[in-house]
Amino acid sequence: MIEALVLTGFLGSGKTTLLGHLLRQPAFSRTAVIINEFGEIGLDHDLVEVSEESIIELQTGCLCCKIRNDLATTLHEMLRRRDEGSITPFTRVVIETSGLADPAPILQTLMTDLTIAGRIVLAGVVTTVDAVNGADTLDREEISVKQTAVADRLVLTKTDLAGPTQPSFIERLRALNATASVLAVQWGQIDPASLFDGRLYDPFTRSLDVQSWLSTKAVSHAHAGQRHAVNTYAIMRTDPIRAVALTLFLETLSEHCGADLLRLKGIVNILESPDRPAVIHGVQHVFHPPSWLARWPSDDRRSRMVFITRGIPRGWVEALLDALDAEVAAVSANRS
């Protein structure tokens, strides 16, 4: 399975600098890169010094909206050329979005497109945040809030220019995304392992490693007072959840919440599968087919789901899950 890392962040937040540094590291020697530039003249690919054959630039528009199909087509073509042996057999793909891109549709493409499904797996989302201008950008640009909210890793850039990072800014980032770790860098220099340590992608389960997500202490944050409120919370259930109830739950979330459900990840104790928990992962209205762990990763067998949403009340999510599970239980009882 080839891992795909999505590198996003607002304009000028240091994505290309970070990417340039990463690609000079031996660990990234077999990495293919897709750079999406928004504008008439692309520069980023010239700023990243690696072998030309492994860089593809998508320049016709913003990756998230105009040329989303191009991403799937490009990935498919890269896989074909890899299989033919006409390009280096890359083991990782980095997709650098334009600074104006909404990362959610890109994640959905990676999760659902049949031409690449089964060969490329989303390994994580890294979002660069400018320590100098980041706070102002969050105030002004909704897309910056979203880029921050969906990240698995937040990389705080330009810390050499900003001086000591204000604790209030870190707190604000954590309020937007309590599950992502925050890494501070200067001049884009970062240990590549820090972006992958914690195993965002678990090769054994072939899914995002929810343990790293769920390790955050009882996440519950609301970014109140902002124009585009993002709230994060975890829902836990001790009793197993019926598989049909979980399906209905995900479908109803998709139907009623759509774009406001920025990300959902969870490990679920399914009544019909007590020894093999299901791992669920959704971005907006698209849910990845659940994967099944071979066993519980710890003695904790509670279902745990982490939500990053734009204004979806926790109480509604909890009431929905409880009601659906109760109804499915009642139907099952009537039939038996």
Binding site: L250, E251, T252, F287
Partner: peptide, 27 residues
């Protein structure tokens, strides 16, 4: 029920067309 009630009270609401991949109910 939820769909009916919302349609009745929230005329501007348009249900998102669910795009959930086939869900294997058990491993």
């Amino acid at each position: 029920v939820l769909r009916m009630v919302r349609a009745a009270l929230d005329p501007g609401y348009t249900a998102m067309r669910a795009r959930i991949a086939p869900f294997p109910l058990v491993p």
